[in-house]
């Protein structure tokens, strides 16, 4: 049984006016599937402009793919029209955004977001039932309603606020959580609390997480599978540890070489990534096709491969 099937999906944005129309291919031919009943953390890695956020927005139904289809639990995401179907979809798939300070209105108490979610998605009307649902979700992220009630965004730390954002997403008990760079705006000291939380959601609550990031170190720490994207193309996808230990595509190698090593602190051994690798990575953008390897990964290989 497939939970989410992304089949040869592409997104092309038109740019410019009528006379100077150009196109930008944000996502090209991306395919992957998530199995129901087998929760996992799927990481999508790429730098700014590699199309990872566009892909996430398409899965959430916020953009319509120009090619291919995204099917969630037998239902094509692009065909969701009615409000009832939309709400039903939102009960199953929930987003967590990058910057918690921007995601919450500074003039609104944060528990009002939780309450609104409980009312619309769970259809609760009774005060005690709403509070119970809110408290339940907050407990899952290590907070409680007593701590959060009546607080404004500026009264909470970045890490706490991001946990509230995750708690809000957990209210309808979704099966899929899409977290778009959930830790890049959170302090390094609090980063691991969010990362550990996402890992626990997978292990204990059977939530599948699509984790979008450009941070290879956290991806290595907790993801099961990764997809590496460059300028809208998938260049390598497969088991996380295999790929990050021995990246095969030059772009994956470039990404790994750009991670700041801390194994030898204070020696200032900071060197640019090998130019030839970087140039090879850029020259091969989108060329060739994905070829499967024996260790379970697929790599984009130039030429007929």
């Amino acid at each position: 049984m497939t939970l989410l099937n992304v089949d040869k999906v592409g997104k092309r944005f038109p740019m410019g006016g009528i006379l100077s129309r150009r196109h930008v291919d944000a996502v090209v031919d991306v395919s992957f599937a998530l199995e129901a009943g087998r929760p996992e953390i799927l990481t999508i890695i790429g730098e700014s402009g590699s199309g990872k956020t566009t892909l996430a927005r398409m899965i959430l139904g916020l953009e319509t793919p120009t090619e291919g289809a995204i099917v969630f639990d037998g239902q094509s995401v692009a065909d969701i029209r009615s409000r009832a179907a939309r709400l039903d979809f939102m009960r199953r798939v929930q987003p967590v955004f990058q910057n918690p300070f921007e995601a919450f209105n500074p003039l609104k108490q944060v528990d009002r977001y939780l309450e609104a979610t409980a009312r619309t998605l769970l259809g609760l009307k009774d005060r005690t039932a709403i509070d119970a649902a809110m408290d339940d979700a907050l407990q899952k992220v290590g907070l409680s309603l007593r701590e959060i009630k009546g607080r404004f965004a500026h009264e909470l730390s970045g890490g706490q606020l991001q946990r509230v954002a995750i708690a809000r997403a957990l209210i309808p008990n979704p099966s899929l959580l899409i977290a778009d760079e959930p830790v890049s705006m959170v302090d390094a000291s609090l980063r691991m609390s969010i990362v550990n939380l996402l890992r626990d959601l997978r292990t204990n609550l059977n939530v599948t997480v699509i984790y979008i990031t450009h941070d290879l170190a956290t991806a290595y720490y907790f993801s099961d599978r990764i997809i590496i994207m460059q300028k809208g193309h998938v260049v390598e996808q497969g088991p996380a540890r295999v790929i990050l230990d021995t990246p095969e595509h030059p772009y994956s190698q470039l990404l790994k070489a750009s991670v700041l090593a801390i194994d030898n602190p204070g020696r200032g051994e900071l060197e640019l990534a090998d130019r030839s690798v970087a140039e090879l990575a850029w020259s091969q953008t989108g060329q060739g096709r994905l070829v499967e390897r024996a260790d379970g990964r697929s790599v984009r290989v130039a030429g007929s491969g």
């Binding site: 390094a188 000291s189 691991m192 609390s193 969010i194 290595y220 230990d245 991670v259």
Partner: peptide, 17 residues
Amino acid sequence: SLPRIGDRSPKAALEGR
């Protein structure tokens, strides 16, 4: 608390704010 490639040992986060 710094995650490193090649290291999957659990990393604890500092509690509190």
